[in-house]
Structures are given as structure tokens and as C-alpha cells.
Amino acid sequence: MNSRLFKERILLGSLYGFTACGCLVLAVILILVFTKGGLAISTAFLFEEARNFGLEGGILYQIAGTLILMTGAALVCLPVALGSVLFQTEFLHSPKLRKIFRLVIYALNAVPTIIFGLIGYLFFGVFLEAGVSWMTGVLVLAVMILPTLHVSIHEAVESIPKHYREAGLALGLSPGQQMRAVILPQSLHGIVTGTLLGLARAAGETAAIMFTATAFSGVRLPQSWTEPVTTLQTHILVLAQEAANPVALTHAWGAGLVLLTLVFVLIAATLWIRSGLEMEAQR
């Protein structure tokens, strides 16, 4: 019995060990970003234009570019995702077609992001003649986050209790009225969490936009559809390649901290909404 207990202790200890190591690594990452990035952060850094190839000045237009691309992508994607989910759940009766639709969305979720960049550029950049521009970036990212929004909204719509729908039908609502009165309000949490997750995904993406939407210098806010922007992600990419220059690295960590904070706020918001939901469901 004693050896059994001993074995148990050893195993539990190793579990704690592995967990601690894993947590330690992840903690180190966060500490690195926050301490190294913290050194760069100041109001000037946040609200000044980058100068001398990012070695002086701040990251104002990089922040703006990231925000433009991510909100643009979400705004383009949301109606499409919402509409296609509603079509799938409300009008598509054939289980076979529904299954195909779901599989296709799963397949899209598996596509490596760099491929969105390649094909997206070909289609939006060359075929629709948007070139290397923020519009191309927005569209590429919109396609990229489609599965994120779709899955989240779909889950929410599916989880609406049956008797809610039946009540709507009993009142003689048309499909359009049914959507407005029952389905949209009841799946709002899915729409919002999906959008927030999509925003977070778009904000963190580099590969899909680095040769389709961004330029290195001379970029402020776009003044037409076909102009490139500059983003936090690509700014870090350029500065990271100057790793031997401590100033470049400090600025890269600073931009990284801002980017990470943005992504964390978005994800934390979804967690907050979800936890609020669980609490209310328990009541």
C-alpha cells in the first residue's frame, strides 16, 4: 500500500512539474513582452508618427492601420456570416446540404493564413484591381475570419430553445419577422463573441497581409481605396529583423505590447460575456 501511495505521489508531482514548466514558459513570454515593451511605451510612442525607419518616433499610424484592417474585416464579414448562418438554419432544409456547408466552413478554418494572402491577392489585388492596398487586406482578412464568426453564430442560433421558435410561429410570424423578433435577439451573444474573436484573429495576423496590404514607410492614413497601410504586425516584422540593434528591438517590443494588449482585451471581452451568460443561465 505504501509503494502505491508513493507512486501516486510521484505521478502527481510530475503532473504538477509539467504544468508548472508550461505555465512558467508562458509566464516568461508575458513578462518579456510587458517588461521589454514597457520600456518603450510613452504617450509620444503611442501618438507620434514613426520616423527614421521606425527607430525614432512612435507607432501612431501602425496602430491606426491595425485598427482599420481589423474593424474593416469584421464589418465586411459580419453581415455575410450572419446571413449565411441564417440561410443555413432557416431556409436550408436538406440535411445533406447543411452538412456540406458545415464541412466547407471547417475546411476554410483549416486553411493556413498565408494561403489567404496568396489567393486573396490574386483575386482582390489582381482580378479586382485593388493592388497592394488596405482594401485588399480588409477583404483577405474578412475571408480569413469568416469561419470564426460563422461557427460562433451558428452555435448560438442552434442553441435557441425550440419553444421560442414555436412561440414565434404560433404568433404567425413570417421568417423575416421571426429572425428579427426571436432569432437575432436570442443569438446576440454568439454574434458579439464571434465578432470579438474575429477581431482578435484579424489583429494578430501578419502572414496574410504582409504582401497584400502594407507598405514600409511614407504611409499615414489611406486616402483612397487602393492605398496601402502600415500595421503593428508588419512593423514588428521589419524591426525584428534588425535584432542586433537594441533601439529597433525596444520599439518592436513596444509595438508588440500594444498589439498583445489589443488582442487580450478583445479575447477577455468574449470570456467576460460568456461567463456572464453562464452565470445567468445558472439562475
Binding site: 508562458l26 513570454i29 518579456l32 513582452v33 482578435a200 484573429r201 489583429a203 494578430g204 495576423e205 501578419t206 502572414a207 504586425q233 514588428i236 516584422l237 525584428a240 529583423q241 535584432a243 528591438l249 518592436a252 517590443w253 508588440g256 498589439l259 498583445l260 488582442v263 487580450f264 478583445l266 479575447i267 477577455a268 470570456l271
Partner: peptide
């Protein structure tokens, strides 16, 4: 915490990798 960490952008890991 894990869900937050799952969202850390690839470029941050890249920066850490190179530096």
C-alpha cells in the same frame, strides 16, 4: 488564462524567437 494565451499573435512569438 489558456484561452487568452492561445490568442497571442504569431509575430510576438517570432519577435521572441529572433531576439
Amino acid at each position: 488564462a489558456m484561452e487568452l494565451l492561445a490568442g497571442v499573435p504569431g509575430i510576438i512569438y517570432g519577435l521572441m524567437g529572433i531576439a
